[in-house]
Design a protein around this nucleic acid. Sequence first.
DNA 1: GTCTATAATATGATAGAC
DNA 2: GTCTATCATATTATAGAC
Lengths: 199, 199
Amino acid sequence: MASARVSKTKTAIRNAALELFAVYGYKGTSVRKIASKVGIRESALYNHFKNKEAIFLTVCADIFTTPFSKKNIQEEAKKGKKFLANFVVQYKLVSFDANKEKLFRIMMIELLQDQTLRQNFLNEFHHHNITLLSEAFFVMMQSGLIRSSDPMFMANEFLAPLFYYRLQITLFRIDAEPTTALSTLFEKHVDFFWESVIV
Amino acid sequence: MASARVSKTKTAIRNAALELFAVYGYKGTSVRKIASKVGIRESALYNHFKNKEAIFLTVCADIFTTPFSKKNIQEEAKKGKKFLANFVVQYKLVSFDANKEKLFRIMMIELLQDQTLRQNFLNEFHHHNITLLSEAFFVMMQSGLIRSSDPMFMANEFLAPLFYYRLQITLFRIDAEPTTALSTLFEKHVDFFWESVIV
DNA sequence: GTCTATAATATGATAGAC
DNA sequence: GTCTATCATATTATAGAC
């Protein structure tokens, strides 16, 4: 199997780096600290990765993998509110997933400093979701489920609060504050939004 | 006047630091680079500031000053949509203000790394606006302008897209991409939101 | 594949002459 | 208030023994 091709030490470095990058960012994480967390010397680390940037790129490799597929969007969108509720359930799951949360932290820290990451965010993360939701809203309009309007703007209005709530959850969790109050916002958002677009 | 108490060099350091922090963040900005931008040596810089952190704190001093006051909120809120439109105009002006944009960049870069800044964001920035908007929506509900619901949740739904649009503007401007398409989102948001809450 | 040793550079900060 | 000189430390990365 493919995963056996990655050595134990390399995986350990990746995991240690993920933890540190998520807390201290790229510049705040030294190769020394990563090696120390793994339990090896810096020099040993260079047997597995070319340099610090290579570690970072490996860690960030699946930062923009998304659970939202455009498969059967034409059929799925006809479910109306049910489709939106499903979307939000996925979004919420991702928001509370420990591993995804670390990647989200890295993304937020480096978003304004790393051009490649920023462009991936806008293309893979934002634009991907906006086009998917736009298509869904377009179908819903044609099906007479929701009122006619600009599907892309609707997509923005639907997506924006989800992102804001996710950011808040992330900030709260950094300081180990409870997120129960925030947790319910997702479902309330679907209800509120649906009421505002339904015919 | 009070501003005369701050020397020219100290102001120059502050401005140079603002530019650099906004692009490279705290860790990515060295005292050397700040001094170099001002045109003096590092050592001379320490005659004006105790250390690097003191420069950062001075730069960040008015990062959370807000144009949104709770004054006359009872009266202002009765204007309904007009109140929301005014709020968004202010928010939009801040989003496109060059100086405020730099401070917003610093805030976004350090938000996940600096606990003090993060707590100020949640208290001064988020919570301040949420309570202000909550009060306004409460008044609007009592005045029969909008449908009865949870004012605080409504405030979240109203504020979240504004933040998301501002973040997008900031990201676009870093890469010198045009923001005209984003510019109209603010007004459209007010229209869309008002339609969804109006009785 | 890991270690010690080391290089080259960058960093925050201070001492003391002018 | 600025300069030169210097320090202590941290950083990324490499060389070569085991």
